[in-house]
Design a protein around this nucleic acid. Structure first.
Length: 420
RNA sequence: GUGGCUGUAGCUCAGUUGGUCAGAGCGUCUGGUUGUGGCCCAGAAGGUCGCCGGUUCGAGACCGGUCAGUCACCCCA
C-alpha cells in the first residue's frame, strides 16, 4: 500500500477537487487578460543557476528547499521552487526593448523540500503575475487591485491587503542603522533567531512572530519614516491609487518579506481561514538584473498559493460537492445488445446527444445496471435488449420522473433533447 | 530541520487494566422469480490491526525504531 501512496507533500487530485482547480485556472485566464496580461508557460525545471541568481544564494529557499539533481550531461538542474525566476529568464531570452513592458501571468506546480503542513506542500501550485519594465507607482496600485479582483471573483471574502514599503536601495543603510540602534538595547530578551538577525538581517526582526520579539518590534521605528522623499512620494502614490480604485488596505509597517530584491512596495493578502500559514498571496516591486543585459529591470508582481486559495474557499463553504458523473446511461441486456449499446453510444457522441454517455458492457442483471446508473446520477437511461433490437427501438427512461417510453431510433434524438 | 497528536476493512470509527478482539455503521456485490434504480429485508466479499524489532506463556493494545498523515515552529504561497 505504501508504494502506491503519493510522496509526502504531494497528492493525487480526483474529481470533484479537479473542478475547483479548473475554476481557479479559468478565473486566472479570465481576469488577468482583462488587465492586459497574457499567459506565459515556462519549463518546470531550469538550470539551478537561474534560481540561485534570482533568489540569492543565502535565502532559505535556495539553501535548503530546492529539489536539485544532475541530468545525464552532468548539469545541475532544479525543479522550480517559485515562478518569478523562470519568467525573468524567459523575458531575458526574448529580449525587452527599452520602454517596452512585459505583462504576463502564469500558474502551475512549484517544488520545495519542506515539511508539509496545512496549506504547505512539497509540490504546491502558484498563480502569479509579473509586470516587467513598468516603474510607475500606479502600476503597483493596479496590480494589487487586480489581485483583489481575482480573489473576489473566486468568491473569497475576508481577505486583507497588508501594505508596506521598503524604499529604495539607497535608503537601506539608513533604515538598517536605525533599526539596529533601536533593537540593540533589547536584544537580550529576544529569541535566538533575532539575536542573530541583528547583524545578519535586522529587517526581519520586525516581523518575528516570537511574542517577546513582536512586543519589542511594535515600538520600532517605522520604515516609512526613515525613507527619503522619493521613496515616501512613491508610496504615497501607490496608496492614493489604491484608494481611487476602491481597494481597502491596511498599512503594515512591519511587513518586509524575505527577498532582497524588493524595492518600494511590498504586500500580502492574508486570510483567517488558512490556519498558521495565513498568507494567500504576496508580492512587491523588485529590481532585477537579467543575465546578459546590463540594464536593471524593474517590475511588480505577486504569487498566490493555489492550495491556499482553495483552502480559503473551503473555509467559506465554497468547495465543489461531488455531482453526477454520467448524463446518459446505456443498459444492454444480452450479448447482441451489448454490441448494439457500443454502437449507439458512439452515435450519440458523434451527434453530440446525451451529454456524458456511458455504456454498460458488464452483462449484469437489469437491476444491477440500473443501480449503477442511479448511483452515477444519470438523468436518462436507454435500455436495449433483444426485444428492442428486433423492433428497432430503444426503451428510454427519465430517471428523475420515472417516465418511460419506447422510442424508435429515428425519434431518439428528439426524445433525448427533451429529457436529457 | 525541530516538536505535539494520530495510523484497525473502500470510508468514518469501536476495540475496557495485554488473553475468542479481529468488530460496527456506511459503502460495495448478489439475491428478494421471468428485463427496471432510489426505500426495505437477507446474504456475501473485503483487513497479515502502517512497517520492523523487542517485552511476554500470549499484543491491535506495552516499549523502541521506522514510514506516513496532521498540526505547530522555521520559512514562505
Amino acid at each position: 500500500m505504501a508504494v502506491n501512496e503519493p510522496l509526502p507533500g504531494t497528492s493525487d487530485l480526483w474529481e470533484p477537487e479537479v473542478s475547483d482547480w479548473l475554476l481557479l485556472e479559468n478565473k486566472a485566464r479570465e481576469v488577468f487578460p482583462r488587465y492586459g496580461y497574457s499567459e506565459l508557460r515556462t519549463p518546470i525545471f531550469e538550470r539551478t543557476e537561474v534560481f540561485v541568481r534570482n533568489l540569492g544564494s543565502e535565502t532559505d529557499v535556495v539553501q535548503k528547499e530546492m529539489y536539485t539533481f544532475q541530468d545525464r550531461g552532468g548539469r545541475s538542474l532544479t525543479l522550480r521552487p517559485e515562478g518569478t525566476a523562470g519568467v525573468m529568464r524567459a523575458i531575458a531570452n526574448r529580449g525587452l526593448d527599452q520602454g517596452e513592458e512585459a505583462r504576463v501571468f502564469y500558474f502551475g506546480p512549484m517544488f520545495r523540500g519542506e515539511r508539509p503542513a496545512a496549506g504547505r506542500r512539497r509540490q504546491f501550485h502558484q498563480v502569479g503575475v509579473e509586470a516587467v519594465g513598468a516603474d510607475s507607482p500606479w502600476m503597483d496600485a493596479e496590480c494589487i487591485a487586480m489581485l483583489t479582483h481575482f480573489i473576489e471573483e473566486l468568491g473569497i471574502r475576508g481577505g486583507k491587503v497588508m501594505l508596506n514599503t521598503r524604499g529604495l536601495p539607497e535608503d537601506r543603510d539608513a533604515v538598517s542603522a536605525a533599526l539596529k540602534e533601536y533593537f540593540l538595547p533589547h536584544v537580550g530578551g529576544l529569541c535566538e533567531d533575532c539575536q542573530r538577525r541583528l547583524d545578519s538581517n535586522v529587517w526581519r526582526m520586525l516581523d518575528c512572530k516570537n511574542p517577546a520579539c513582536h512586543e519589542v518590534a511594535l515600538e520600532a521605528p517605522k520604515i516609512l519614516d526613515l525613507l527619503c522623499d522619493t521613496s515616501r512620494d512613491f508610496f504615497a502614490r501607490v496608496c492614493q491609487g489604491l484608494r481611487d480604485l476602491g481597494v481597502d488596505f491596511e498599512l503594515a509597517p512591519r511587513l518586509v518579506r524575505g527577498l532582497d530584491y524588493y524595492v518600494h512596495t511590498v504586500f500580502e493578502i492574508t486570510h483567517s481561514g488558512l490556519g498558521a500559514q495565513d498568507a494567500l498571496a504576496g508580492g512587491g516591486r523588485y529590481r532585477i538584473s537579467l543575465p546578459g543585459d546590463k540594464r536593471t529591470l524593474e517590475g511588480i508582481g505577486f504569487a498566490a498559493g493555489m492550495e491556499r486559495l482553495l483552502l480559503a474557499r473551503e473555509s467559506l463553504g465554497l468547495k465543489t460537492e461531488a455531482g453526477a458523473q454520467t448524463d446518459t446511461y446505456l443498459i444492454s441486456l444480452g450479448e447482441n445488445a451489448i454490441l448494439a449499446g457500443l454502437k449507439l453510444a458512439g452515435e450519440l457522441r458523434t451527434k453530440k446527444l446525451g451529454g456524458r454517455v456511458k455504456a454498460d458492457f458488464s452483462a449484469r442483471s437489469m437491476k444491477a445496471q440500473m443501480r449503477t446508473a442511479n448511483r452515477e446520477g444519470a438523468s436518462v437511461v436507454l435500455i436495449q435488449g433483444d426485444d428492442e433490437i428486433a423492433k428497432g427501438v430503444v426503451t428510454c427512461r427519465n430517471m428523475k420522473t420515472s417516465e418511460q417510453a419506447t422510442v424508435s431510433l429515428a425519434e431518439l434524438a428528439a426524445w433525448l433533447t427533451k429529457h436529457a
